[in-house]
C-alpha cells in the first residue's frame, strides 16, 4: 500500500542520515562477503563498497554506494559521492563478474558523483561514460536497486541494468530539487515545489516504466524491507539467468531504447 508522502518528504526520507545504505544490505543479505578494493589505476574510493558473496547460496558481485555512519567515516567516504576511482573499481569488478558468469547487484544511494577539482583532473565524466558504455554490453545479469537518493549521472553510472528496483521512499532524478529550484526560480528554498515537478518518486518512475519494481516501506522495519528486497532479487536473478546472453543484452538495450522513443 502506498502512503501519502509528498515528493519532497520522500527526498528527505531518502537522505535521512539513519536510512540504511549499501553496507546495511550487504551485511543483512549477503553471506561470506569478501570486500575487494581499488581500481588498479589510481586508488580506492570508499564511497563505493564492492565485493563478492552469496545470496541464498548464489554467488553474486555486489557494488554499493556508501556514505558512512560517523562523521569521520562520512568524510572518508566523501558523504557517499563517488570519485572516478569508485566508478572504475565498480567497472573492474563487473568485468570480473562477467568472466565468472556471476550476477551483479548495484545499490544506489548518493547525491551524485563527487564534484571537485581533483575528480575532474582524473576524468569524472569519462569514468561515468565508460560505465554506461560497458554496462550496456556486460554479458551477465545486472540488477540495480535505488535505496536512497539517485543523484543524476553519478547514480546512473551504476544504473544501466536489466531490472531496476526502487525502495518506496527512494528518489531518482536528473537534478536535485534544490539545484532545479535555483535554476528555475533563483531560490533553492523552493525545492519542495521543484521536487513535485521533477516526478522523481518511486511511483513516478514505475509509472514511466523506468523502474520495474517498487519495494514498499510504509509500516515496515528495515529488516522486513531488506527481506522483501532479497526475495525480489532472488526472483529476478532466477529469471535473468534463464536468458541466453543474446536475449539478455537485447532486453537491456530495449529497456533503455524505448525510453523517450
Amino acid at each position: 500500500m502506498a502512503d501519502t508522502k509528498t515528493a519532497y518528504e520522500r527526498v528527505q526520507a531518502a537522505r535521512n542520515g539513519k536510512r540504511p545504505m549499501g553496507s546495511y544490505y550487504i551485511e543483512h543479505m549477503v553471506d561470506d562477503f569478501v570486500e575487494l578494493h581499488g581500481d588498479r589505476r589510481f586508488g580506492d574510493d570508499a564511497a563505493i563498497v564492492a565485493g563478492i558473496g552469496y545470496i541464498n547460496h548464489i554467488p553474486v558481485t555486489v557494488i554499493a554506494m556508501e556514505r558512512g555512519d560517523t562523521i569521520e567515516d562520512r568524510m572518508k567516504r566523501n558523504f557517499g559521492c563517488p570519485e572516478p576511482e569508485g566508478y572504475r573499481k565498480a567497472l573492474r569488478l563487473m568485468k570480473e563478474a562477467e568472466k565468472f558468469h556471476r550476477p551483479v547487484i548495484c545499490f544506489i544511494g548518493s547525491s551524485g558523483a563527487y564534484c571537485g577539482i581533483e575528480a575532474e583532473k582524473r576524468g569524472q565524466g569519462l569514468a561515468i561514460a565508460e560505465n554506461l558504455y560497458e554496462m550496456m554490453g556486460l554479458k551477465t545479469p545486472v540488477i540495480s536497486v535505488v535505496v536512497g537518493e539517485g543523484g543524476s549521472g553519478g547514480a546512473l553510472a551504476l544504473g544501466v541494468c536489466d531490472t531496476a528496483i526502487m525502495l518506496e521512499n527512494a528518489v531518482y532524478s536528473v537534478i536535485s530539487p534544490e539545484g532545479c529550484a535555483s535554476i528555475l526560480w533563483k531560490d533553492a528554498s523552493k525545492a519542495p515545489e521543484a521536487a513535485e515537478h521533477l516526478r522523481l518518486t518511486s511511483y513516478d518512475l514505475l509509472s514511466f516504466d523506468v523502474v520495474e519494481k517498487v519495494i514498499p516501506e510504509t509500516g515496515k522495519t528495515d529488516r522486513e524491507i531488506c527481506s522483501a528486497l532479497k526475495t525480489v532479487l532472488l526472483d529476478e536473478i532466477k529469471k535473468l539467468s534463464s536468458l541466453t546472453t543474446e536475449e539478455l543484452l537485447d532486453h537491456r538495450y530495449q529497456k533503455f531504447r524505448k525510453i523517450g522513443a
Binding site: S152, Y172, S173, V174, L200, V210, F256, I259, G260
Partner: peptide, 11 residues
Amino acid sequence: EGIFSLMQMAK
C-alpha cells in the same frame, strides 16, 4: 524532462 533526459545518456 526529468528522468527521461537522464536515461537518454544510457540509451
